[in-house]
Computed example of a mutant assay.
Amino acid sequence: MHNGRPLTLIGAIFALAGLVLLGVTIAMAASTASFLASAQRTEGTVTGLTARTTTSRDSDGYLRRSTTWYPTVEFTAGGRRYSFQSSTGSNPPAYTEGEGVPVAYDPDDPADARISTFWSAFLGPVITGGLGLLFAPIGTVLLVLGRRSAKKR
Rank of each mutant, 00 (worst) to 15 (best):
S120K: 10
L142G: 08
K152W: 13
L63M: 15
P110D: 05
R41N: 09
Y62A: 15
L133Q: 07
G98T: 12
V101H: 00
G130K: 10
P93R: 07
V126S: 07
M1K: 13
P137E: 02
G130P: 02
L142S: 05
A30C: 04
L143F: 14
E43W: 11
V101A: 03
N91E: 11
P92C: 06
T76I: 12
T54Q: 14
G23L: 10
Y105M: 02
A33S: 14
S120C: 09
Q85K: 13
T8Y: 13
R52N: 13
F122N: 10
T140S: 12
S56Y: 06
F35V: 06
L16A: 14
P92M: 07
P71D: 08
A15C: 10
P107Y: 05
V103Q: 00
T47F: 03
T68K: 09
T76D: 09
P137G: 10
V141G: 08
S31T: 15
T47R: 09
S56L: 01
V24K: 01
V103T: 06
F35Q: 07
K152Y: 12
I26W: 05
M1W: 02
Y105W: 03
T53S: 09
L133R: 02
A37D: 13
I115P: 01
P102Q: 01
S83M: 10
R5T: 13
L49W: 02
S66I: 01
A77N: 06
G23Q: 08
I127E: 09
G44S: 12
F14H: 05
V103D: 02
T67C: 08
I13T: 09
W119V: 10
R41T: 11
D58A: 15
H2V: 04
L134W: 05
R80P: 08
I127D: 01
G18C: 07
A77V: 05
T72W: 00
D58G: 14
I138E: 00
E99N: 09
V141S: 08
R41K: 13
R52G: 03
A136I: 00
N91D: 14
R80Q: 15
T8K: 12
G130Y: 07
L21P: 00
T128N: 03
V103H: 04
A37Y: 06
A77S: 12
R5W: 07
L145K: 15
G129F: 04
A39D: 09
K151W: 13
P6E: 06
L133H: 08
P137C: 02
V126E: 03
P107T: 08
Y82P: 12
R5C: 02
Q40P: 01
T53K: 10
D108A: 15
A17F: 14
V126Y: 03
T45N: 11
P102V: 05
P102E: 07
S59Y: 15
W119Q: 12
D109C: 08
T68Y: 10
A113Q: 12
P71L: 01
G4T: 00
G89D: 10
S90V: 06
A51G: 07
L16W: 07
P102D: 02
R52W: 06
R153C: 05
A37S: 12
G78N: 10
S87K: 14
S87H: 13
D58F: 06
L16T: 12
L63E: 14
V101F: 04
P125T: 08
T54S: 14
F135H: 02
V73G: 00
